[in-house]
Amino acid sequence: MNSKLASRSIIVITLLFLIGPFGIIILAGLSAGDFMTFPPDGISLKWYAKVFEVKSFRASFALSMFLAIGGTIAALLLGIPAAYAISRYKIPFAETIKTIVAAPIIVPGIIVGLALLRYLVVPLNFTVTIALFLAHTALVLPYAVRVVSSSLNNLRSDMEEAAVLLGCSRVGAFIRVVLPNIRSGVLAAFILGFVTSFNQVPVSLFLSGPGVRTLPIDMLSYMEMTYDPSVAALSALLAFLSVAIVFIAEKFLGFSRYV
C-alpha cells in the first residue's frame, strides 16, 4: 500500500535525523587517525582507550556521577514526601508550594549557576561542589515530584486506610503499602533524575572551580583545545551508557510512560 510506504518513510527519515548522528560519532571515534574525519581514517580503538586515560575525564566523571546519584537521592528524599502530601492531604497553599517546587524547570540553568555562584559560593563560602549539589538537587526535584505524584495518583488511597485500620501507623502504612506500590515510579524518577543531572550543562557552566568540573563541561573545554576523536569516543560511550540505562528501564518499568 502506498500510504503505508509513505508513513514508514516519514518515520524512518525522522528517526534517521534524530539518531543517525550518533552512528556517525560512534564511527568517528573509531578513527585510527589523529583528527576528526568522516569516514574515519582506518579503524582502531585507540581513542576509546584514550578516554579512560585522560585524568580530568576520570575526575569529572566521578563528580558527575556523585552529583547525579547524590542529587537525585536528595531530590527523592525531599520530593517523595512532598508528592505524598500534595496527593493525599488538603494542605494550605498547595498551589504555591507546587509552583515553587516546579520553578527550577522554568528558570534557565545558566542563571541558576550564576546566581548560586554570586550569592552562595562567594558570600557564604560554600564550596563549588556543595553549590553544584544543591543546584542539581533542586533541578531534579520537579521531575521527582511529578513522576512520583503521578504514581501516587494512580494508587487508590483506601489501601493506606485499610493498613491503618489493620494497625499500621501512618508512616508504617506509607512504608509497607504505598512504597512497594509506587516502586517503579520511584525508580523511573531516579533514572529520569539521574539522566537529567548527568547531562546537565548550563547550571554547571559557572559552577566550576580548580579541579571541580562536571563531565559535560570538561568535554566542552577539551573540545575547545583539541580536535582529536577522543571526544567523539567519549560521546559515543556516554550515549551507550544512556541507551543501556533507558533500555533496561524501559524493559522493566515501561519507562517511556513516565517521561
Binding site: 548522528p21 560519532i25 568522516f38 539522566v195 568535554m219 567519549l234 550515549a239 541507551v243 517511556s256
Partner: peptide, 23 residues
C-alpha cells in the same frame, strides 16, 4: 518507535551536538 524517539532525550546534549560538527 516511541522508544527510539525518546532515546535522544536521554543522551548528553554535548554528545548530541558534537555529532553535527562531524557532519
Amino acid at each position: 518507535v516511541f522508544g527510539l524517539v525518546i532515546l535522544p532525550l536521554m543522551i548528553s546534549p554535548v554528545a548530541r551536538t558534537y555529532a553535527w560538527i562531524v557532519i
